[in-house]
Amino acid sequence: MRLNQYISSSGFCSRRQAERYITAEKVLVNGIVASHVYFVQDDDQVEVDGHRITHTVETVYIMLNKPRGIICTASPAVSDNILDFVSYPERIFPVGRLDKETEGLILLTNDGSIVNALMRVENNQEKEYIVTVDRIITDEFITNLSSGVDIYNPKKKDYTRTNPCRVIQLDEYSFRMTLSQGLNRQIRRMCRRYQYTVTRLQRVRIKNIQLGSLERGHWRYLTDEEIAGLKV
């Protein structure tokens, strides 16, 4: 967070007054006079005119309907990264990831405590997807996906069998799939095992959070009820 914003958001003074303090060289960060362009880090100690600034960071929980082409990384060196796309004024990070060509629901937060709760395999948190493929779906294909699929794991140099999962056909070319695993490009690889190619992949639910009618490329804050459901 930029220095003037950090000072004002602590309640010490307005942002304009914070800028005056910085110009007058009355703002120290870690004992050194700081400039207007300084971005405050988590472990910095900020003083204004001899007063120590205490800053309570409010937890932020955001859901984004990620469009295709956006990359789920916090690295500013990567073009089309998700943080630049959201352009939130405070430090947040994505919880988990969707690959570049996958769209739909992803959460962003500054609360590291929910990451393990949502992402650890043993917690078996459900994630639901709408999958569209390139040719007509058969009953056998749905049954095979539901039962578990042997997909090659390049790290182990062996095959990994996916867990049984719920698969419901929606029409000739699309189905709804609910997973509690998070293997790399899992759905695409499961379909490819039976010579189907995924043409569109959209995540529509994470645990109790539904994508609903949120427009593609838009984000909103989670409700108190949604946040409480995440932490159960």
Results as ranks from 00 to 15, higher is better:
residue 44 D to V: 06
residue 33 V to T: 15
residue 100 K to R: 15
residue 101 E to T: 06
residue 74 A to H: 09
residue 73 T to Q: 14
residue 65 N to S: 02
residue 77 A to L: 15
residue 102 T to S: 15
residue 73 T to I: 09
residue 55 H to W: 05
residue 24 A to V: 08
residue 67 P to H: 08
residue 60 V to S: 02
residue 29 V to A: 14
residue 43 D to K: 10
residue 54 T to V: 14
residue 94 P to G: 01
residue 70 I to A: 01
residue 102 T to F: 12
residue 51 H to M: 11
residue 72 C to Y: 10
residue 25 E to F: 01
residue 110 N to Q: 04
residue 77 A to H: 11
residue 30 N to P: 04
residue 53 I to S: 06
residue 29 V to D: 01
residue 64 L to A: 07
residue 40 V to P: 11
residue 109 T to G: 03
residue 39 F to Y: 11
residue 30 N to E: 04
residue 32 I to M: 00
residue 78 V to G: 07
residue 44 D to W: 00
residue 105 L to H: 02
residue 37 V to S: 15
residue 84 D to H: 15
residue 45 Q to M: 09
residue 89 P to Q: 12
residue 42 D to Q: 08
residue 94 P to Y: 14
residue 35 S to Q: 12
residue 52 R to L: 15
residue 31 G to Q: 07
residue 79 S to R: 09
residue 63 M to H: 11
residue 93 F to D: 00
residue 45 Q to D: 08
residue 52 R to A: 12
residue 109 T to E: 09
residue 96 G to Q: 04
residue 102 T to R: 06
residue 48 V to C: 01
residue 76 P to T: 08
residue 94 P to K: 04
residue 37 V to I: 13
residue 24 A to L: 15
residue 23 T to P: 02
residue 23 T to H: 15
residue 76 P to G: 00
residue 71 I to R: 12
residue 61 Y to K: 08
residue 73 T to E: 05
residue 107 L to V: 10
residue 105 L to F: 04
residue 44 D to L: 02
residue 75 S to N: 13
residue 57 V to H: 09
residue 91 R to Q: 13
residue 87 S to H: 14
residue 68 R to H: 04
residue 31 G to Y: 02
residue 39 F to T: 12
residue 98 L to A: 05
residue 88 Y to C: 12
residue 100 K to Y: 09
residue 104 G to C: 03
residue 84 D to K: 13
residue 53 I to Y: 04
residue 67 P to F: 09
residue 30 N to G: 02
residue 67 P to V: 11
residue 82 I to M: 11
residue 61 Y to G: 00
residue 43 D to W: 03
residue 33 V to K: 14
residue 39 F to S: 10
residue 66 K to D: 04
residue 97 R to Q: 05
residue 42 D to A: 07
residue 34 A to E: 08
residue 33 V to S: 04
residue 26 K to T: 02
residue 102 T to E: 12
residue 68 R to M: 12
residue 30 N to W: 00
